[in-house]
């Protein structure tokens, strides 16, 4: 093979790579792209992964809140795994920020929380005949979770601490994808499991399990915001109007959840935003408290940061004040 030919092949390969990544970066962020157009054409991209607790997004969208606010909103379906990544790279402008994103924020994801959304959507269940009734009974047991060091594990670790149980040595944590947790428990591979709703709730409704921990109903968790309104950092810093509109959008959606939970649940299932039955979704929506309260959100966020640091989910090196300063903003 002559040198010319080799050089030619290499050139093709390099060009291909550049074209592919170049085409990708053409999109830039949703914000940049729309900034180039006129103001009225700024399309708000709101990401969702299909959870019950994202109800405000769907409620606001279906009830034409966007039009009332004079904005254009587009809902973007993301995979549950990379909500934080989609947001912080600007592929979407806002998401409902669940505790699953907290660790990502700590690691530097450019997400800023601007408001509270609701309390409680994480629970843990055990088989109905199990000797486990609460976190106090978890010593020496196998607990199924959706992710190592995920929110459920963080909260439970907090609970275990209160009962003098060491989460690292006294409890065995096993990770399964959320839909498989119940199967694992049925097969006896784990003694109980915890994750987002609706998974822990389903066997309870079927009479096969009982709730052993819940941040919807148990103190002190029930008094703290669980999920927040998360906005892309760049948008907060450079497009405050957009951020305000997003906050209003979520707020309006939350109100619908408070006042018309059954209709919202029915709509969510019919339009295939989420799975499960309308009854199950309605039950969960009614259990959570929906409110928009930025100041309270800040207070609750501080509490979360403290808990996550205490149980070791956040790095020891992380400075809480700096983190909170960077990741929460009360919009004027």
């Amino acid at each position: 093979m002559s040198k010319k030919f080799i050089a030619f092949l290499l050139a093709i390969m390099v060009t291909t790579v550049f074209v592919m990544t170049g085409c990708g970066s053409d999109k830039k962020t949703a914000a940049d792209q729309d900034k180039n157009k006129t103001k009225t054409e700024r399309v708000y991209k709101i990401g969702y992964w299909g959870g019950t607790c994202e109800a405000p997004i769907f409620a606001a969208y279906e009830n034409k809140i966007a039009e009332k606010l004079g904005i254009k909103v587009e809902l973007v379906l993301m995979s549950g795994r990379n909500t934080a990544e989609m947001l912080s790279t600007g592929k979407v402008d806002a998401v409902l920020a669940s505790p699953g994103s907290f660790k990502g924020i700590e690691q530097g994801m450019d997400m800023v929380l601007v408001d509270s959304a609701h309390t409680g959507c994480i629970q843990a269940s055990a088989p109905i005949n199990s000797p486990i009734n609460s976190a106090a009974d978890l010593k020496g047991k196998r607990v199924g979770v959706d992710a190592m060091g995920g929110p459920l594990m963080a909260y439970l670790t907090n609970e275990l601490k209160r009962h003098g149980i060491d989460s690292k040595t006294d409890v065995e944590w096993k990770v399964y994808p959320p839909p498989q947790l119940q199967t694992a428990m049925d097969k006896g591979e784990i003694d109980c499991f915890g994750t987002w709703d609706p998974f822990p709730q389903i066997p309870v409704n079927e009479g096969k399990a009982k709730i052993i921990w819940s941040n919807t109903t148990m103190s002190p968790y029930k008094d703290y915001t669980c999920c927040f309104v998360g906005v892309n950092g760049k948008v907060v810093r450079e497009e405050p109007e957009v951020a305000k509109n997003i906050q209003a959008f979520f707020k309006a959606g939350g109100e619908f959840c408070n006042t018309q939970p059954d209709e919202v649940a029915k709509m969510m299932v019919e339009k295939k935003y989420t799975g499960g039955t309308p009854e199950l979704n309605a039950q969960l929506i009614k259990d959570y408290k929906w409110y928009s309260d930025p100041a309270r959100g800040l207070k609750d966020w501080k509490w979360h940061v403290k808990i996550f640091k205490d149980v070791g989910v956040f790095d020891a090196a992380t400075n809480p004040e700096e983190l909170i300063q960077k990741s929460y903003k009360i919009l004027e």
């Binding site: 990544e85 660790k103 990502g104 690691q107 530097g108 992710a147 060091g149 990770v175 994808p177 694992a184």
Partner: peptide
């Protein structure tokens, strides 16, 4: 290694990814 393993490279990778600890 998504199915309830106690350790493993895939398990570790899943964990790291969930925590955005790339």
């Amino acid at each position: 290694e998504m199915l309830g393993v106690k350790a493993g490279l895939g398990w570790y990778i899943n964990w790291a990814q969930g925590w955005a600890e790339y």
